[in-house]
Amino acid sequence: MTSSTAQPQTRQVPPLGGLNLTALRLEIRRVLRNRRTLVFILIFPTVFFVLFGLPAKHEVLAGHSALAYIMISMAVYGAMVGTTSGGAAVAVERSLGWSRQLRLTPLRPVAYVLMKLVTAMVLGLIAVVVVFVVGALTGVRMPLHVWLLSALAAWLCSLVFAAFGLFVGFLLPSENVMQYVGPLLAILAVFGGVFVPLDVFSHTLQDIAKFTPVYGVGVIARSPLVGGFTATAVANVVIWTALFGFGAMRLFRRDTARV
């Protein structure tokens, strides 16, 4: 703590544009205090897993345990909702004028966005871990490397939705942004084969689904269990992340230039 002299001799600019662990810690704690966020990223995926997964406990899907398959799918869903809401938080903070308040501090806009990104990824990680823990407790059995790889894939690939959240957050300055985005995520999840395997759809729909943003994440996250890892899936994730990231960056530039 510095002493309270009215005129410090040297006034410095903070390192890393103000990015620091204290702020990050407080930010994550604050987000986890929000009941609505917790319901969306922790309760919903878990409840879906229990509702859809447990009745199919002894069934087989794509040649593997249906329970494990559904658990991974729900982890992907939780991660995408978590990262999206983390990124979309910029909408809330813009609408409340908090971003304007932060403009009066040394925090650089880029550092602010990075903090949002990290927070989003932490939410995504928590969502994946919770679904996996519930899965383990309710009888999912997989080799250790499948647990680790699918969790890692579900989490890391959800970066595409952190970028999507930021994009939406800079697009719509609304306190209730997740009310519009939530249903959209559910529709995307259907096309990504998260709620039902894609082969229940017609061939045309299956082809279209390959171009939607959840498809790649779903395929990659399930591949440690069922295989089917394809270059198409990787390209899907990379391209969508780049698109949303680019869009978010454009809007972010416009936003910082205007204020």
Binding site: T22, L26, L107
Partner: peptide, 21 residues
């Protein structure tokens, strides 16, 4: 000025303080 409703008064200050050198 915007303030975040789900921070406490003390947290708002801690957060902002951490942004300065």
């Amino acid at each position: 000025g915007g303030l975040l409703k789900d921070f406490t008064v003390g947290e708002t200050l801690q957060y902002t303080a951490s942004l300065y050198a």
